[in-house]
Design a protein around this nucleic acid. Structure first.
Lengths: 143, 143
DNA sequence: GCTTGTTAGTTACATTTTCAACCAATATTT
DNA sequence: AAATATTGGTTGAAAATGTAACTAACAAGC
């Protein structure tokens, strides 16, 4: 039978979820508190700000978010004037999404906050730990 | 200004979320597909099976889940006959929750599946990586 | 041309999660 | 003892997510 030395702390998906939740919650005030954004909205802003204008489809693929979530995030961001849509003449199904001035300002702020947050979070680990943690997570996430 | 070498892959909360999502989704068929359980229900079953009967309050604290989620998970598990409630004579607000025979059988199955899943997930890493990953996650999760 | 199939994106509906208010039992204060 | 506060747990409404069906634009086959 199962010898009972296997604990919740030994179940990696559980640990990953707890760590993800803790770190996400700690960063949340930056986009939620300051800009009233949801997590998916912040991810969309990140993608547009970091990689330039693109279509919703591209965001779905790069951010690995389902299209309905992206659709709603884009609608919300548009309503709050963080981004704008431009029709693409060659294919009228597509829309080029890009940040407005307000969106770019928010992105810069959040981008810096994210970097600072990460620096602080990782400061508790040695460089070897940091590199190994990153590698393991990327591998588990199949990125 | 921000020199743009900071990528999404360098933002640890993002990596943690992607890894947590990927691993949780991969394990999900075990409790969802086979037993029709939600994630919180599986966690409740795990706690009762692994640590013995306890009250909802104790599950909240140990599993770090909000009481409304536990309350609903317990109600669902009771309806499906995975657990039963017993009044505690000294404090009638409390109920001792414990697994039924059906609940214990499901727990044993899921417990073994969890262990096997974890073994397989971690097999791609060296023992040093495994230990370091575990330590880092526990620290980030503040467990 | 017309039919069929695909693709980008939205919308409607069901399920889950979250937040606050709530109830009943116990504990505390006076 | 009576009044108040606290605690364990539930419930209802609002917010968010997931799933599937849908629309409109394009593409391919005939």
């Amino acid at each position: 039978m199962t010898n009972s030395d296997f604990d919740l702390r030994d179940f990696t998906p559980y640990l990953l979820n707890m760590a993800a939740e803790a770190s996400s919650e700690a960063f949340q005030p930056n986009y939620k508190g300051k800009y009233g954004m949801l997590r998916t909205e912040w991810r969309v802003v990140f993608h547009l700000g970091r990689y330039g204008p693109m279509t919703a489809k591209e965001i779905c693929e790069r951010a690995r978010v389902h299209k309905t979530k992206v659709s709603r995030a884009v609608a919300a961001l548009e309503k709050k004037w963080f981004l704008k849509r431009d029709a693409l003449p060659d294919d009228r199904r597509l829309e080029k999404l890009s940040l407005t001035a307000k969106g770019r300002a928010a992105f810069r702020d959040l981008y810096d906050a994210a970097r600072a947050f990460d620096d602080h979070l990782m400061a508790q680990f040695t460089p070897e730990q940091q590199a190994m943690l990153r590698d393991c997570l990327i591998q588990i996430a199949k990125l």
